[in-house]
Computed example of a mutant assay.
Amino acid sequence: MPVRDVEWYGAGRAGLTVVANRGANGIDGVLSTALGVAVGSGAPTVALLGDLAFLYDIGALLGAPQRPAQLTVVVVDNDGGGIFSFLPQAAALPAERFERFWGTPHGRDLVALAAAYGVSSRRVEDLGTLRKLLADPAPGVSVAVVPSERAANVAAHERLHAAVAAAVRSALA
């Protein structure tokens, strides 16, 4: 969902370059691409990705602390495949079955995993702390894990979509 949220709701601004990557399955190589962009550009870089994309490419962190990169990786951690919570089967299947086959909870401590690769990492619990971290990023490669709940994310999107629909109806009336 993070790349979709940026596409749908992110406002453009001068001096900002947005790069997106979709692997064969949507999440392959996303972390490697971010590291490559940071090294290649020589500019401070922020990567926004979901927890499964992070886990699928976590090997990219091997040797990352020694690379000439200024990269802050922001990982939205909803313990699984949050995008699948938007599909009809999320409501149609028993919760246990949905979780096993679509929610795919990983139950991993992403901060500890990043630290195992020698990368500075921390859990960020609030928007103010995230804003400070992004305004004054740590040198080198770092990871900020932001907890999220899948059901709350779906509800937030439903409210946004309803507000957009109401605005369109109002404008067309």
Results as ranks from 00 to 15, higher is better:
L71F: 00
V111R: 09
P88G: 07
R122A: 15
A24R: 13
R97W: 05
R122V: 08
N25D: 13
S121L: 04
T72W: 06
L61M: 11
G40V: 02
R13C: 03
G80I: 09
A112P: 05
N21W: 14
I83A: 13
D57F: 05
G15K: 03
D28Y: 06
G26M: 05
G10I: 06
Q70T: 13
A11I: 09
D79Q: 08
G10T: 05
G26E: 04
S41V: 02
N25S: 11
A64Y: 12
G103L: 03
E96T: 12
V39P: 04
P94H: 08
A92R: 13
G12N: 10
D5Q: 12
A114F: 00
T33G: 02
G82Y: 11
Q66L: 12
S85M: 09
V46A: 14
D57V: 01
R100N: 07
G40C: 07
P68S: 12
L113S: 00
L87W: 10
L71S: 03
L49C: 05
G42S: 03
P68I: 09
G12I: 00
W102C: 11
G107S: 05
G12R: 14
V119S: 12
L48V: 14
G36C: 07
L110T: 03
V46E: 00
G29A: 02
N25K: 10
A34M: 04
Y117L: 07
V73T: 09
R97A: 12
A64S: 11
A69C: 06
A112R: 09
A114W: 00
Y9N: 14
Y117A: 05
F98V: 08
D51C: 06
D28E: 13
F86R: 14
V39M: 05
R100S: 11
V19I: 12
F84A: 09
A24D: 08
Q89F: 04
P105N: 03
R97D: 15
L62Q: 14
T45S: 13
Y56M: 13
A53Q: 00
L31T: 00
L16I: 01
Q70F: 00
L16S: 01
G36Q: 08
V46G: 00
G42E: 02
D77A: 09
T104Y: 02
L31R: 04
V18F: 09
P68A: 15
E7F: 14
A115C: 03
G103N: 03
A92V: 06
R100V: 10
V18S: 03
N21K: 08
A90D: 10
L31C: 01
G82V: 10
L113D: 05
L52T: 06
L52C: 01
F86Q: 11
D28W: 08
V6P: 00
G50T: 10
N78C: 13
I58S: 11
L49M: 15
A112F: 01
R123Q: 13
I58A: 15
G23M: 04
R22N: 05
V18E: 02
V37E: 10
L61F: 04
V119A: 07
S41H: 05
R13Q: 13
V46D: 02
G59N: 15
S121M: 05
R108T: 06
R108Y: 10
R122K: 13
L62F: 13
T33S: 11
A11R: 15
